[in-house]
């Protein structure tokens, strides 16, 4: 992996029931999570997109356990985050992001794996789909969206948005993965990060935990919204902010995986995201004027 590597995105045309996997070399500058999602929302704004996006550390390091979802609600950019197993499943499916575009003609469940995405009828039980032990199920309920029946996203508007798009559920099965290139270096870095468990901003508990996180904390099921652009581009948990906000540590993690980001890349990230969001609002405003 390197900074020049592409971001892999699955586009799902809900109206046609078709999907296509595309590579975007230019998106690596946005790192992942909200960085990538804000750019994809901007680029596909005319398709009313709902973007699910993970980051470079998901599936590789402890506490990097969230998935970002970004969309527009009545013209406002929303970024919300959920935990559980979704981010590791996406990572080990070889997908950095997927975009739901337009609206389905009939309510449906999206089934995603390494070979692409298909839509199945909404009355198919989410728990019956996917590969046991490698799957993750997302259910769209009235007023909430739950990952594996427990982990919610922070913003309830996601439920309304997915419902309007005709999505009743999403199932992701991890069907691929990665060979670790520099095992010794990666193992050392992984153990260093795991050893920072005492710096987490929440107490450990015995609740269902997000994949890759040893905490089992009492708030893993609540989800998150907005906030720190950097950690939400990696995409790590808000309770690990004191760990992943350390640029040298984040660099060490990224470098152990072969990414060659430099300081300027990471420092530029918040501005890139805010620029994207401002452009989204400008575009929405222009389109409104044209309509009038």
């Amino acid at each position: 992996m390197s900074r020049e590597d592409s971001i892999t995105v699955v586009h799902v045309d809900l109206e046609k029931g078709e999907s296509a996997k595309k590579s975007y070399p230019d998106l690596r500058a946005y790192v992942g999570g909200v960085g990538t999602a804000s750019k994809l929302v901007l680029d596909y704004q005319n398709l009313d997109p709902i973007v699910f996006s993970i980051g470079p550390l998901n599936g590789f390091f402890p506490y990097a356990s969230k998935t970002c979802v970004a969309f527009l609600d009545e013209g406002k950019f929303v970024d919300t985050y959920g935990g559980g197993r979704l981010s590791t499943r996406l990572k080990y499916t070889g997908v950095d992001a997927f975009i739901l575009e337009k609206k389905a003609r009939e309510p449906c469940v999206l089934v995603l794996d390494g070979s692409g995405a298909v839509l199945v009828p909404a009355d198919t039980a989410v728990e019956s789909l996917g590969i046991p032990g490698r799957r993750c199920g997302v259910e769209v309920l009235d007023g909430s969206v739950l990952i594996d029946g427990y982990f919610a996203f922070g913003d309830q508007r996601l439920s309304k948005k997915l419902g309007e798009a005709g999505i009743k559920g999403i199932v992701v099965s991890a069907t691929s993965g990665f060979q670790i290139e520099n095992r010794e270096r990666y193992d050392r870095q992984y153990n260093e990060m795991l050893g920072k468990v005492g710096e987490m901003l929440i107490e450990a508990g015995s609740n269902p935990s997000c994949s890759g996180c040893p905490m089992g904390c009492a708030r893993s099921n609540l989800g998150e919204n907005g906030g720190n652009v950097f950690i939400h581009s990696l995409v790590s948990c808000v309770f690990s902010e004191s760990i992943y906000s350390s640029i040298p540590l984040a660099f060490a993690c990224l470098n152990s995986l072969g990414y060659d980001y430099v300081h300027e890349d990471l420092e530029a990230l918040p501005d890139l995201v805010y620029t994207n969001i401002n452009k989204i609002y400008e575009k929405a405003s222009d389109s409104k004027l044209e309509t009038e």
Binding site: R85, Y92, S176, F178, Q179, S209, C210, S211, G212
Partner: peptide, 23 residues
Amino acid sequence: EKCIGCELCVLAAQRQVGKASFE
């Protein structure tokens, strides 16, 4: 009954064979 589903064991086993995957 104590398992919290964190999957650290799964990932640790895979790291020993140089993989980051569930495969």
